[in-house]
Design a protein around this nucleic acid. Structure first.
Lengths: 341, 341
DNA sequence: CTGAAAGCGCTTACAG
DNA sequence: CTGAAAGCGCTTACAG
């Protein structure tokens, strides 16, 4: 392993000062073409690369974005929610195309957010992503705000909440999918998914569900709701409980696709057919949803666009531009599980 | 936004020198408990965080790993191979648990690898991940090697190749899954997936396929092979071509699950049932494979373990420990698509 | 167009 | 146990 070349090595070989090397390599117009060409050539020969730490230290910015993924503490360690995996992919792409590096880390809600502070020094801004306990989350956001850290958050809109939110209209998504079921003639419903302050996304989906029913005079139906977080086993357990305790709803609205897949399992076990006996719809449009039998009707959050929006907004904030919340429309994806076809 | 606090600010407030602050915050045993406690307290008050750029510059290491994802140039931009997404997840976890930050970037094969060089200054080492054109790839590896960059590569073993490889036994996987089909009584076969030097993983799977057939005196069968890269449309097109041109094989071995899903599409369109008319097996065990109808028999590469192995090996290499190639066993996952059940 | 010099914020020998 | 000082490798006013 060779010694790493520095700008001084190049200056020496080129017979110029180190300042000139730096200028040439940064495409400063102050350098003559011949000098620049010579320097660039030598830099190539020496496999020279600017030391980012030195350069960033001097420039006081890092050209790096940090992505913090919050996991639901109840999630199995080996499994990342496919929706977030997809977001991770699109955010990675979006930052690359903007010329920013992306630092990725997982963050446990319980931890003391040590990592964030560290990241806040290595990155110009932070993207926050994750379901999870919102109340715990809140105080951390205040800390970030106080620190003057630039950040954007993916998730539910919240006026009282500091910082910028990019999110998908969960209320509308819940409303639309439920309305679609109503249009198909169903009259008995249940919602499976958390409905608490700690899970604002799921809660908004539930609100949309309830309001859609109310609007059609089916208000009594909106009461049927069972908590579940976004995993297949949790959905399975919730549906199982419903099969034991209640009269069977004809249509089940799930707060996520993963829950819906668990609901499929429970129904299959009970020898009930989807959608003939029970219609099921999900949320997220994870890849699996198109391949289940029957294919799952769901609500799509456009992750490609979401990633771009998060990255663009954060970069604007870093550049001191004014940024504001953005609510993406949710998109209903109709497949076989709701009995439409 | 407040000014960011530096170690001098803390020193001033604590009435000690800046060196002492640095020592205290780095848990140096040279600082008395009282001094340390006072300093830590003040640091907390000021929301102080070490400037990583300065610290890294001084220490000449970054505690950061870079993950480079190579995309197949033919891949649709909006879609990341789910297998890599899964690896990305496990690598992120593994680096976090080792206390390393992870820099993620996509790399187009055509590009001049500018990014790598840059990354090589921000990171202590690089993890390379991706299918793609191996011949183009090769020369880049030599460059990295020459630069003295620490790196590990996920992929096919290759004696002639520089650096350390962690991979899954593609030959064995191809052999096992084919052997399993033979055991079920099939006698006519086809392989769908590239078989060229540029795709060594697929090629090794094909070799396993061919050798399994040879061993049972079915050598003639090993000739039936159609190129396809790892996408659903590519698998669809390949199966379509086979349906038109050749007598139908009873069992199709696909070089990846994505290809197999495309094969399903083509067979469904031709009103052929899986596995009654044609048995199909895939490779990778992506999440979707468990949810197709019928569920897809496939070969699992343990991504969790792979991620840990890549990260651990790279960190060892960074610490100048001796590291060597590792070949993980492939694991056959039998589901309905092969007709076993 | 070019060079000499300051300084980004740390860590760590060196001296006490 | 603590402080004064050097230096990591850059970028960029400042002076010519």
């Amino acid at each position: 392993m060779k010694e790493k070349a520095t700008s001084f090595d190049i200056a020496h070989r080129a017979g110029v000062s180190q300042s000139t090397v730096s200028r040439a390599l940064n495409n400063s117009p102050l350098v003559s073409k011949e000098t620049r060409d010579r320097i660039v050539e030598i830099a190539r020969e020496l496999n020279y690369q600017v030391d980012k730490n030195a350069s960033n230290l001097r420039k006081q910015k890092s050209n790096t974005l940090a992505l913090l993924l919050f996991e639901d503490p109840t999630t199995d360690d080996s499994l990342i929610n496919p929706f977030f995996l997809s977001m991770l992919g699109s955010i990675t792409r979006a930052s690359a195309s903007q010329g920013y590096d992306l630092l990725v880390s997982f963050q446990n809600m319980q931890s003391d957010w040590h990592a964030e502070y560290e990241d806040s020094n290595k990155a110009d801004g932070i993207i926050l992503l994750g379901y999870g306990d919102y109340s715990a989350y809140r105080s951390k956001l205040d800390q970030l705000e106080e620190q003057g850290t630039h950040f954007v958050r993916w998730g539910a809109q919240d006026k009282a909440h500091p910082g910028v939110n990019i999110g998908c209209d969960n209320y509308q998504g819940g409303f639309d999918v439920t309305n679609h079921l109503i249009g198909l003639g169903y009259t008995s419903f249940a919602f499976i998914g958390d409905n608490s302050e700690d899970a604002p996304e799921f809660r908004a989906r539930y609100q949309g569900f309830a309001d859609a029913l109310d609007k059609q005079g089916l208000s009594g139906e909106s009461q049927r709701q069972i908590n579940a977080h976004s995993t297949e086993p949790s959905g399975y357990a919730a549906m199982k409980a419903m099969l034991n305790d209640a009269t069977l709803p004809r249509a089940v609205v799930c707060a996520s696709d993963l829950i819906a897949v668990g609901v499929y399992d429970a129904l299959r076990e009970a020898n009930l057919r989807v959608p003939e006996d029970v219609a099921v719809v999900g949320y997220d449009n994870i890849p699996i949803s198109g391949y289940t039998t029957p294919a799952l009707t769901t609500v799509r959050q456009n992750t490609t666009k979401a990633g771009e929006l998060l990255v663009d907004t954060l970069i604007k904030a870093i550049n001191k531009e004014v940024v504001e919340d953005y609510l993406m429309p949710a998109e209903l994806i109709v497949r076989r599980s709701c009995g439409a076809q």
